[in-house]
Design a protein around this nucleic acid. Sequence first.
DNA 1: TAGATTGTTAATCGATTAACAATC
DNA 2: TAGATTGTTAATCGATTAACAATC
Lengths: 201, 201
Amino acid sequence: MGFSKKAIERLTLYHCILTHTVAERDFVSSAEIASLLKFDDSQVRKDIAACHIIGKQKYGYPVSELKTAIEKTLGFTKKKTVFIIGAGNLGSALIKYTDFNDYGIEICALFDNDPQKIGKEINGKMVYPMSKLTELTAQYHVKTAILTVPAQQAQNVTDVLVKSNICFIWNFTPCVLKVPENVVVHYENIISGFLQMQHEF
Amino acid sequence: MGFSKKAIERLTLYHCILTHTVAERDFVSSAEIASLLKFDDSQVRKDIAACHIIGKQKYGYPVSELKTAIEKTLGFTKKKTVFIIGAGNLGSALIKYTDFNDYGIEICALFDNDPQKIGKEINGKMVYPMSKLTELTAQYHVKTAILTVPAQQAQNVTDVLVKSNICFIWNFTPCVLKVPENVVVHYENIISGFLQMQHEF
DNA sequence: TAGATTGTTAATCGATTAACAATC
DNA sequence: TAGATTGTTAATCGATTAACAATC
């Protein structure tokens, strides 16, 4: 239900711990998770409780149950079909990023207006011209687009996405986009992450 | 000037607006910025005040002054030399990501243990073996490493980074890392961004 | 002048932390 | 049993929003 953005971020990190750090164990305590991430342990317990997982006093939480619960809560288990708009460096890198599959994200095609790229495949996925977008969005029931076009084209392409009934735009460009009320833009502000890190001591 | 992570993220977005959306104008109001980002306008005014920029009643804030002020405040103007650890798909994509330059980030080399990659250049930057890391970190006064190795190697490589006196690890792997007190890890949790977006309506 | 917009204080809201009884 | 750990309530803290006087 109402998970805050920060809660989602924390749960994703707990999932990383369950998958990589304590994968081979049966139980993990809130204190252990908290200490790895430098979080408060009651924070961890609250987050876990929100996933309806009940711990065992003296042992902690069952690793594999908790992992499954987070996957369900955050929707990893639900297949999400997405398009990449812009088959440049970043778009090409993302199509090769295999970790997406672990989270239920399936990139089904790329779009670009460069004739050099159209009709070719990148990592087994076809690059289509932008003119095919509306048709294919409907055909594949795609709700989400990953936007990796050059900054100058970001708004124009966004307008096309909106017309094609895309409702989530995962924006990797450094542009703020104008969209109607019913469209969600997520600013994947990679630079902001770097700056946040540098401002810590 | 303790800017919170959220404040840094907002300022980065204001900077995008100043650079792309209203670049050719002289003034922009807090209400305009707020409406583009769906923020509260007093929030925007507070953030701007924290950058020591004074607005003009009836006009708003001077675009180019504000842009420069954000750049100074967030440290875009300070050159940051960084290494990429792991010359795979993601590492190779990031080295080609030219937007970094706009924020003062200069990637000066890559590191990998694959003999196929060592000694070659990617986008004009040399790929060195991990064994050279300590030496080159000292030589170039590098404080930050971008971690893009496969998950299984993430902790081992982190231990090497720590020994080499790296103090900021920009972590693109899906692993939670054990580091000493004085080392900052930033989890660049790309998936979390996607999930946050999908949980909005 | 009237209207628009800032700068800032006070009020509200939500998130984090502390504390501790329950219990395995 | 004693010790460890959960689950949860209450207290604290910080961030966001509302409101409005100042002023160009």
